[in-house]
Design a protein around this nucleic acid. Sequence first.
DNA 1: TTTT
DNA 2: TTTT
Lengths: 137, 137, 137, 137
Amino acid sequence: MLNRVVLVGRLVKDPDLRYTQSGKAVANFTIAVNKPFTNQNGEREADFINCVIWNKPAENLANYMSKGQMIGVDGNLQTRSYDGQDGKRVFVTEVLAGSVQFLESKKNNKQEAVDYPSTAPQTQSEPIDISDDDLPF
Amino acid sequence: MLNRVVLVGRLVKDPDLRYTQSGKAVANFTIAVNKPFTNQNGEREADFINCVIWNKPAENLANYMSKGQMIGVDGNLQTRSYDGQDGKRVFVTEVLAGSVQFLESKKNNKQEAVDYPSTAPQTQSEPIDISDDDLPF
Amino acid sequence: MLNRVVLVGRLVKDPDLRYTQSGKAVANFTIAVNKPFTNQNGEREADFINCVIWNKPAENLANYMSKGQMIGVDGNLQTRSYDGQDGKRVFVTEVLAGSVQFLESKKNNKQEAVDYPSTAPQTQSEPIDISDDDLPF
Amino acid sequence: MLNRVVLVGRLVKDPDLRYTQSGKAVANFTIAVNKPFTNQNGEREADFINCVIWNKPAENLANYMSKGQMIGVDGNLQTRSYDGQDGKRVFVTEVLAGSVQFLESKKNNKQEAVDYPSTAPQTQSEPIDISDDDLPF
DNA sequence: TTTT
DNA sequence: TTTT
């Protein structure tokens, strides 16, 4: 089956880098992708898309990119669910980034080695032990 | 900015066709896209991705495709929010399909005229007047 | 059927804008997309991908973008053939751009209105009357 | 940089499987992807897109798929050149498939394990020692 | 609950 | 026949 997403947009806030108990890096980030037209009031709207990236690229992202910067994302859509604070199941649809491209970087010019192949299968091979209370959704 | 999604998966249930007050057709549908690997228990998992399509292609989808059939989707990610029944804002990430391809059809062999160009801007040009209580999320 | 291409790369030369006899604008351009790894000699290689865009976006491209600038392309692959100068048929595979995003612009900050829907069907509805001798391939 | 291609189409002929001198499998194949509209004579046209795939998936492709079958391809565009029989340099643009999905299979129902990550970097890490005279272009 |  |  096919599952492919490509986005270019701006970071809505700084990436949120964490580590699993086994030491893997994960970064959550949200990008604003402007819609290609204006709405009925002449305003440009955006979609705000949640993304995740794992391992070394997660650390690079947190090191070199910050709120407002433009970024490219190549990955796939994933859905997952967790128990919300009110006991109800919460369903999440987000982009699992295999690679990101730093289209601007205030901090440093190190360009992320873009890595088509990496739409990280390892994500799944190890339980994520960040507790749900910490998840940004 | 760029916002592109391509999926191939199977309809998890029959498409849900509705009409806005102004008479536009909208179909909501969910597809299961198998992950390309098995989990730690050797099971194949899937992502369950919500999609929307507008106008004539929505009617064609409802007419020719049903639960279990394989479908291709070309579109873009959109996010929106509505007030949930508990008064809390619910955020939705879904795929706005510009075109769909019927990769199997139990009903009829009419192949959807696949339509790269149609990632429907008109979606936004008119308020959607289906009430939130009817939305399948 | 599905046919989708998304690229981010740099213009290898200035876009080449022409007009058909009926007055439609067409721009041909080539972008270098660096490969995500270095070769056996430690060098970064690139793919050099030929693209075409029609109508107003072709004129915008020629007006605002030039050699070396970074550009995003959303489109589809097309193949065509013509008789080469030696009488042999030449086959061309290129990207028909539906929309482009100006990720840098030396000339002006006018951001191309990115237009998912436009993977230009009109391309085909009218014969292209630029003579083959003028084609950049 | 970003370089992503997704296609669904039909094999125009049986895949052509070969081995490099070092024993790696490579399969070349061409798919016809119908255009989403008919031309001025009411005929449906297609694009004929050359693709390559490496290693085990190349062997699976050759084993399970044949002329006329529908296939999905996820990969990236690559360009390369070689010296043609008339001494002139020939430029090739083709899709390097990272994964393929067998959407039909006359031979066997074994579904290719779809493998987002595999847009094969190894392709480049070893010289291809099939002589140019054998190349299908 | 948002970016330029 | 190539970009940074």
